[in-house]
């Protein structure tokens, strides 16, 4: 499967995750977000950027529990909690934010 934006083609798997992480950019993130019915705000971008940095460092997308804890460490407890993250990404912060961020599905996501 694929998404086409302004003549550029982005390949995705059957669940809508980008298959080539290096293809990711803000344009495709906005389209992926719209498909997930997520309206991107600065707070959303903050989580997406955090996830991408985590992936760069560790080469995996974190499980939601690990993500929550790591965000709490970096951005403070008012952001490192389930309520805040689920408000931003109602269908699961790890799953939805990874998809929008162009990362693979989190390891440990069953």
């Amino acid at each position: 499967m694929a998404i086409e934006i302004n003549g550029k083609t982005y390949d995705t798997d059957e669940e809508g995750y980008l298959t080539d992480l290096s293809q990711w950019d803000e344009d495709v993130a906005k389209v992926l977000a719209a498909e997930e019915k997520v309206e991107m705000t600065d707070n959303h971008w903050e989580v997406i950027n955090f996830l991408r940095e985590y992936y760069n460092e560790f080469q995996i997308a974190p499980a939601v529990r690990v993500l929550t804890k790591a965000i709490g460490k970096k951005l403070g407890p008012d952001k490192g909690n389930n309520k805040y993250l689920y408000e931003l990404f109602p269908y699961g912060p790890a799953k939805q934010a990874c998809k929008i961020g162009g990362l693979p599905k989190p390891t440990g996501c069953i």
């Binding site: 460092e57 560790f58 080469q59 995996i60 974190p62 499980a63 690990v66 804890k69 790591a70």
Partner: peptide
Amino acid sequence: MKNFSPTYRALDGY
């Protein structure tokens, strides 16, 4: 091939 050695550093967070 994927270099998965950085992932061992994530274990602490798990």
